[in-house]
Nucleic acid binder design. Structure first.
Lengths: 172, 172
DNA sequence: ACCCACATGTAATGGGTTACATGATTTA
DNA sequence: TAAATCATGTAACCCATTACATGTGGGT
């Protein structure tokens, strides 16, 4: 307790929302929602029902402020980070504990249970999955170079991990 | 519609529960919960409030059956897969679409937003994370060889992905 | 005239989390 | 005898999902 500022904890989605707004000061909730939809991870659906209440909560926690920029009958609300919001985001982004935690991977989960399959079931599954992961998935053209290269790198590593598993697994 | 059997869809947690029961026919809900708690992924907390209602739902969907094996005052309910349960599990385990989807990775998420950090913030974060991922985390001794080796392989692959990112990122 | 993108939101639902509550049996 | 493990379950809460509802403005 060398500081008496309490750092608020953020869920992964809350952190991502702050990060998106940090990139795009004055983002609308609609823009944030679309950013989630555009992201190559299908973990977040990017639904309005998630984003609109979420930004409202973050504003209530004083991590965001908003101003109304409606033009006539067309509604528009722009969000930006507060000072606390920026600090909280910084802590979230550099949280080593969180970064090291394994997360959630549908491929890994299935490999964990691969002993439940026999050779005739497992081998085609591994082969097809490997092929699919090897196909370059270009993603939407709107993606930034960083996002695109990270997405590609991650796909490659998962493919390599799968290859390694396939090679090393006990044959019957 | 060449078959009129409708394959039930399973969430990742439901699939994992069926897989655990398939390994350990006659598992208790308590055993399943502990399996989740033991798993190296902290994504699933392995809470009673998740597992007990879940097996009840799966039984209602006729994917599981249970029998009471209470001994005197000590309650005990054992679960096993039905034929439908086995078929559904097989489809879930070999679902290539699901296996290929990216899932959710706290490290990847942070790297996506790494452009928001300056050199003095990013570099120590990357270094610490890399070190932590390089430390062999043995995991509980109860782990099977397959789980342990997969866990290790996945940690290594994330570490390598991080290393590659660190080497390739644009320097300022 | 019609469709698509922009823009806001809510309602019902599902389901996982933490925390609580209880008790038997085993082990140190 | 005290603590840990086995074993069951519920209650309150949080929050993401799907689906719905509404309307503007620009392009073809």
């Amino acid at each position: 307790m060398n500081r008496n500022v309490k750092i608020e904890t953020l869920t992964e989605m809350e952190g991502a929302v702050l990060a998106i707004i940090s990139r795009e000061q004055g983002a609308t909730a609609y823009y944030i929602k679309e950013e989630f939809r555009r992201s190559p991870s299908d973990f977040w659906s990017g639904s309005a029902g998630a984003v609109y209440p979420l930004v409202k909560r973050l504003e209530a926690r004083a991590l965001l402020t908003s101003r109304d920029e409606s033009e006539g009958a067309r509604p528009k609300r722009l969000f930006k980070l507060t000072k606390t919001g920026r600090e909280t985001l910084l802590h979230w982004l550099t949280d080593v504990d969180r970064a090291c935690s394994l997360g959630y991977d549908p491929l890994r989960t299935r490999l964990f249970f691969s002993d439940l399959l026999n050779e005739e079931q497992l081998e085609p599954f591994l082969k097809e999955t490997e092929e699919r992961l090897s196909m370059a998935t270009p993603g939407p053209a709107s993606e930034s170079a960083l996002v695109a290269s990270l997405h590609e790198a991650w796909s490659n590593f998962r493919r390599d991990a799968l290859k390694a598993f396939r090679a090393r697994r006990p044959k019957r």
